[in-house]
């Protein structure tokens, strides 16, 4: 029969320093990797919206027109997925939790110097009048063109998985992708049925893919 087995530990504890902190009066020190809150280098942000679309609790709102990046810190679950997917790596997580509050508030971060310049509006070239003869004439050229584009797109896709690929047969050249591209890496010419991507400028954010009405673009 072992009575008061624990007394040795208890008495030892009585004469030791307490392990608890008088929190929050005594602040806690967090380790370097501690996931407390998301910080953004707004200067580098290209407002592509990847974080917004991949945030599991949908706590982030990116407004390209206003140049604001908004996070609801009360909704954020500190999973760090936004910084994983950020093409510009301008998001990172830092120690220090969100202060408690009585209501959920958004914290809005504005881009200094206003919003990013909007991409150029699509060049509204007058649609060539329907001239069946002319079209017939150019038919061969166009076919050759589009084929060349197609192969180009395919090869670009195979070498670099982070650049969008276009299934040119389904493309209607609506230019939505180009208009939504945050870095203007896409060139679309409806008249000449040209779809080009500048691999060096492209950040692989996937904006074009998500905006494509025909779902002919793919990435990854």
């Amino acid at each position: 029969m072992a009575l008061l087995t624990f007394s040795k530990t208890v008495l030892k504890n009585l004469f030791s320093e307490p392990e608890t902190l008088n929190y929050p009066a005594t602040p806690r020190e967090y380790p370097e990797r501690s996931r407390g809150h998301i910080e953004i280098d707004i200067e580098n942000c290209i407002f592509c919206g990847m974080c917004m679309r991949n945030c599991p609790p949908r706590a982030i709102t990116v407004d390209r027109a206003k140049g604001t990046w908004t996070i609801n810190r009360f909704d954020c679950i500190q999973c760090n997925y936004c910084s994983e997917v950020c093409p510009k790596k301008c998001l990172h997580i830092a120690p220090g939790y969100c202060e408690p509050g009585v209501e959920k508030v958004d914290s809005v971060i504005e881009r200094p110097g206003g919003p990013l310049p909007m991409p150029k509006p699509p060049v509204k070239k007058p649609v060539p009048p329907k001239a069946p003869a002319a079209e017939d004439k150019k038919a061969d050229e166009k076919a050759a063109d589009s084929k060349a584009e197609d192969t180009k797109a395919e090869t670009s896709g195979s070498t670099n998985p982070n650049v969008p690929r276009n299934d040119i047969d389904n493309c209607v050249f609506c230019t939505l992708c180009a208009r939504n591209c945050p870095v203007d890496a896409l060139t679309v010419n409806r008249a000449e049925k040209v779809w080009e991507v500048d691999e060096d400028t492209c950040v692989g954010c996937g904006m074009c893919v998500s905006n494509c009405p025909k779902k002919c673009l793919s990435i990854g």
């Binding site: 392990e19 967090y30 380790p31 990797r33 501690s34 996931r35 679950i77 500190q78 999973c79 760090n80 997925y81 997580i93």
Partner: peptide, 18 residues
């Protein structure tokens, strides 16, 4: 708490490691 400190040190979260 010692275990959790180690989990936080390596993963960044005390419980949810992500």
């Amino acid at each position: 708490e010692k275990v959790l400190d180690m989990v936080e040190l390596t993963t960044g979260g005390r419980l949810i490691s992500s």
